[in-house]
Design a protein around this nucleic acid. Sequence first.
DNA 1: CATGAAATTCGTCAAAG
DNA 2: CTTTGACGAATTTCATG
Lengths: 165, 165
Amino acid sequence: MAKPQPPPALDDIDRRILAALVENAELTNKALAVRLGLAESTCAYRVRALRASGIIRGVHLDLDLAALGCPLLAVVKVRLGSHDEVGVSTLFDQLVAVPGVLRVLHVAGADDFHLLMAVQDAQALRDIVLRHVTVHRTVRSTETQLVFEARYGVGIPLVPDARST
Amino acid sequence: MAKPQPPPALDDIDRRILAALVENAELTNKALAVRLGLAESTCAYRVRALRASGIIRGVHLDLDLAALGCPLLAVVKVRLGSHDEVGVSTLFDQLVAVPGVLRVLHVAGADDFHLLMAVQDAQALRDIVLRHVTVHRTVRSTETQLVFEARYGVGIPLVPDARST
DNA sequence: CATGAAATTCGTCAAAG
DNA sequence: CTTTGACGAATTTCATG
């Protein structure tokens, strides 16, 4: 039988490409090729293949939310009443569509969903939670906590650990 | 007195540019201009201004973490012992550098930090938490929960609500 | 697979309406 | 803000080791 996904075996070059793009996704193909010591055409070919295989899903814009009028970040934990599969799934769909929601996590534990959202102020947060989250029948309760600061992490290791000297 | 930040007042065009780029950050300048009915030069000028003003911070790569060998997502809640400012700040720096960490939130509440991380399997998660998180003196305890599924939300509203008919 | 040199497209800048 | 045109740079395609 054929494997469902053609073995996407990545070699060192692929991983170095990914590492470079994670560090700076706006690198031009030429700059990337120079940085890795590849020909431009080869580099472009590799990147295209990584996109076609789905390893690179795409890129997301990083906006200054505060400058756009949403200086408040909050985590909203959502607890459900019933947990039937279809209910959870449709609620998921509705939560990602709530204005201000950046990320939705369906987690194992007492809280069923974690929302990370950006809002104008505390009142806007209250309004949105009440009108877009609590309204759903499957939602039993919510718990909101303020986020003082959010940062991006380094992500998963792509290049085999640089060894210490 | 002059305002601390030159009023970055965004007009409708700016907001439509941002909305289009949020939906697809890989749009070429030409395609973006056509889509909004702008001249290419104007469009390029606007986008550059949005970057220069810091409203567009940049772009981040969206990778298929599962395909890269990290199919497990987890939220790790970190609770501190002492809460002195310098300690919190340096711990923050160390947490974002933990391998597999995608996002670090400094939150208000019983848990001081929330880590979103991608790992190979449960054992790798255990090893990383023990060796990179729990080791720090300021960390009193951690609590880990599995993430069944994570999705991106729609983000903050950029275009004034389309009115219903 | 990777390479180098084609052709094509894109982004940038300037001037004028 | 749009149009036009021209220049330089980048991406793509293709033929070849």
